[in-house]
């Protein structure tokens, strides 16, 4: 009994093995499968507040040892205030520049998540401007203005794409701070950052429902207390201060169906 059963099973496994090898090595002419998949992508629905966070390491929360970052803290705060669940999609990527984000917001799934968002948080530009400190090492006004104009173009495209996916959600766009304010050239870099922020704010004003949230002042007086040991990212306290600024701005009324 057992013997014949295992003989049968053995034959089955051998067939599977033969099939696997054959399937692996036989040419398959019909390569693409774009036309074969037909499961509809439903829009995300839900009663709860949905936050989508886009951007760079600040969105990711780099430097915060609790791993929350300002996005986590804002979520916590809002959750407490409205007393219900909050859905968060944190799409921040360390080191992301505006050019990369411009590609990211074109992705299908990202667009779908954006469409379902009630609030969009955005940090971008730090890597464009500072380029890991390189900009400051060989400072040149010409380079900076070139970086700036590139960034402005990318930013407009990003905002346009977000608005195309979702024309209702409020976008909170966080300005840059100057992590190098207490270094030798602090005055000069501050001026560059201020100008950068001014232009970014102007760019965002061309679209509806974008709130530019400044962070420059937070880190202005005692920058070293609020920076992580890499002297570039905020630490836990720094993120808390940012979050305290953003959280009260998020409005939420029960969605009426």
């Amino acid at each position: 009994m057992v013997t014949s059963l295992s003989v049968l099973l053995g034959i089955l496994w051998m067939a599977g093995f033969g099939w696997a090898v054959q399937d692996y090595y036989v040419e398959h002419s019909d390569g693409g499968l774009d036309n074969k998949v037909k499961s509809p992508v439903k829009n995300i629905e839900g009663q709860e507040l949905t936050i989508v966070a886009l951007g760079d390491s600040l969105t990711r929360g780099t430097g915060d040892e609790t791993g929350k970052g300002y996005v986590g803290l804002v979520t916590q705060e809002v959750k407490k205030r409205i007393g219900q669940e909050v859905k968060v999609h944190n799409l921040g990527i360390n080191g992301q520049t505006s050019r990369e984000l411009r590609q990211q917001v074109k992705q299908k799934e990202v667009r779908r998540q954006l469409a379902a968002a009630d609030t969009i948080l955005l940090t971008i530009g730090g890597n464009d401007l500072f380029r890991g400190g390189q900009t400051l090492l060989d400072y040149n006004a010409g380079t900076v203005s070139q970086l700036q104009s590139q960034f402005t173009r990318n930013l407009s495209s990003i905002f346009a794409d977000i608005r195309k996916a979702n024309d209702k959600a409020t976008i909170f766009y966080l300005g840059l701070y100057n992590p190098f304010i207490e270094l030798e050239d602090g005055k000069q870099t501050s001026q560059v950052v201020r100008e950068w922020n001014r232009q970014s704010e102007e760019t965002s004003a061309a679209f509806n429902g974008i709130v530019f949230v400044p962070t420059f002042d937070i880190f202005q007086t005692s920058v070293n207390d609020y920076l992580y040991t890499d002297r570039f990212h905020p630490n836990k306290q720094g993120y808390r201060l940012i979050a305290e600024r953003v959280a009260p701005l998020i409005k939420w009324e029960e969605k009426q169906e």
Binding site: W13, M14, G16, G18, W19, A20, D23, H28, G31
Partner: peptide
Amino acid sequence: TSEVRLVEQWKFLLMDFGLVCF
């Protein structure tokens, strides 16, 4: 991804089992 194609899960399982058995 030029050779990529779709297989139903049970077929894939059978192939897996064949290889594992080998």
